[in-house]
Design a protein around this nucleic acid. Structure first.
Length: 502
RNA sequence: GGGCCGCUAGCUCAGUUGGCAGAGCACCGGACUUUUAAUCCGGGUGUCCUGGGUUCGAGUCCCAGGCGGCUCACCA
């Protein structure tokens, strides 16, 4: 091979290391020899997994008599002069290749020797098991399918640099098997959730991602702009208000699994875009939903994990229903060591908050204070799945007032591993009550609360035509998958998490 | 946004008191027809994250900045 000659190198690769330059030169040499380095297709007939299944009982040293045809990426070479071994990886696994002058001829073997780790190849040849017991394809024909120009991360230590793992997730997937395992858990989880709901006649619908009025949650939205219409739009923070319009339209069971966008801090449990399930179900209340959620998650988790008991971050996690239930006020009472309830005075809340070093802001009422105490003192300590019932009305502008306590709403959250997994309520279907709640939110907004709701008059109008009594639930898919994959960070379960540009 | 930590070869990592930039894998040259982290012989391939400063001399010390991780704050 010629020594590196910078003048001959494509300008895009100036300054690249020796290994890249050599691969580029090899590419040019192969082209000059008439070898097409980027194939159009390769009609492979076998997969590594298929061959392993077919020949699992082939004895050491035995020939199968079967001629295999595989395609995949070369992941390792063990060269021995006139014979060589290589590992080929496809979408299902790896298998050993053996190439030798005997089976390929001098010229073919020479070409095979010139392949690099990372190259995609198609190979054909008989399957046998080596004397050492390794299922192997003896390469009699091969084709370069796609030339790899950059060296892969090291075979033994893999790619460890967390930043590189996220920025170059394709490499992470390629060399760290755990990444693919986690992705598969995610895929299966979403599939099982869909199946569960589809089996119960829920309709999966798609509602707008571009909103004129960001609603359905308390969060800052991302702003974008539609040029032809000349108007500002918001990436949705929740699909809730559109899904409830579906209820008005007579769709009794609807759900959506898709992305929401919130313009907030990034942390181990927050990504700016995240995946949520939301479903709405006419004629049921939040108590029905609590049982339904237990049924749904125990089935989904059981099918994905094969068990309802597993460990998360070194601690036992058990999704076996029924889950523990408490109310928010009971939980706060236990945490502060004295009874609090709907009639607890603002001054008392203030005193309790101070005593437990939970700062309260000006303008927060007792409901917000109670919720703040819950989130600071109780939530982080709730490990096993717990249904926390009856959130205050003040922090639940879209939930129906509690049938027996106007301070509260018929709302619950599922808390596990110290974080919120799901949130559900008996939906507020009274348009006059909803109007008041929106106006209350608008006043908070005027006071500077950027996360308070904007009044959505179109939604109010829809409600005024009549919304059936209904329950609605939101489930954070990423956070559920974190627990199922034993991931500390949400970034581990999102293929391409958001990172600043370098 | 605050605190702490990290950034050195393609990858994983060493680098002493401020004194020639270094190891394993990968890569290159050679040997080798049953290896599988192949082995043996030979070869370091580098914008030490960036920019300033101190110094005879900076990967190392100082200042500013970038990116990332953890954590606190924020966060239905």
């Amino acid at each position: 091979m010629n020594p590196p000659d910078d003048l001959a190198i494509h300008p895009a690769f100036r300054g690249e290391g020796e290994q890249v330059i050599r691969r580029l030169q090899k590419l040019e040499e192969w082209k000059a020899r008439g070898v097409e380095p980027y194939a159009w297709r390769y009609p492979r007939r076998d997969t590594t997994e298929g061959l392993r299944a077919k020949f699992h009982d082939l004895e050491n040293g035995a020939e199968s008599g079967y001629r295999a045809s595989l395609a995949g990426r070369l992941m390792a070479f063990r060269r021995h002069g006139k014979a060589s071994f290589a590992d080929l990886e496809d979408g299902w696994g790896r298998i050993q290749l053996m190439a030798a002058v005997d089976s390929l001829g001098g010229e073919g073997y020479q070409l095979f020797q010139e392949l690099d780790i990372g190259d995609w190849v198609g190979v054909e040849g008989p399957v046998f098991r080596s004397r050492r017991g390794e299922l192997t394809v003896r390469v009699e024909e091969f084709r370069l399918l796609s030339k790899s120009l950059r060296p892969l991360p090291e075979k033994w230590h893999g790619l460890k640099d967390v930043e590189l793992r996220y920025r170059r997730r394709y490499l992470d997937l390629l060399v760290n098997p755990e990444v693919k395992r986690k992705l598969l858990v995610r895929v299966k989880t979403i599939r099982e959730v869909r199946r569960f709901l589809d089996d119960r006649d829920f309709l999966e619908v798609e509602t707008p991602m571009l909103h004129l009025i960001p609603g359905g949650a308390a969060a800052r939205p991302f702003v974008t702009y539609h040029h032809a219409l000349g108007e500002e739009l918001y990436l949705r923070i929740a699909p809730e208000l559109y899904l409830k319009r579906c209820l008005v339209g007579g769709l009794e069971k609807v759900y959506e699994i898709n992305r929401n966008f919130r313009n907030e801090g990034i942390s181990y449990k927050h990504n700016p875009e995240f995946t949520m399930l939301e479903f709405y179900w006419a004629f049921v209340d939040y108590l029905d939903l609590a049982s339904f959620l237990e049924e749904m998650l125990s089935e989904v988790v059981g099918r994905v994990m094969g068990t309802l008991k597993f460990t998360y971050q070194g601690r036992e996690m058990d999704f076996t229903p029924p889950w523990r239930r408490t109310t928010l006020l009971e939980a706060v009472s236990a945490a502060v060591g004295e009874k609090v309830d709907s009639s607890t005075s603002p001054d008392k809340w203030k005193e309790l908050a101070e005593r437990h070093s939970v700062p309260l802001e000006e303008g927060w009422g007792p409901g917000k204070a109670a919720t703040e105490l819950f989130e600071k003192l109780v939530e982080p300590e709730l490990w096993e799945p717990t249904l926390v019932m009856d959130y205050p009305r003040e922090v639940s502008p879209l939930a129906r007032a509690h049938r027996s306590d106007p301070f509260l709403t018929e709302r619950f959250e599922l808390i596990a591993a110290g974080r919120e997994l799901a949130n559900a309520f008996s939906e507020l279907i009274d348009p006059l009550d909803q109007r008041e709640r929106f106006e209350q939110q608008a006043r908070q907004r005027e006071r500077g609360d950027e996360e308070a709701h904007v009044v959505d008059y179109d939604y109010l109008r829809a409600m005024e035509y009549g919304m059936p009594p209904a329950g609605g639930l939101g489930l954070g898919i990423d956070r559920l998958v974190m627990i199922l994959t034993d991931s500390h960070s949400i970034r581990e379960v999102i293929l391409f998490p958001h990172l600043r540009p370098v």
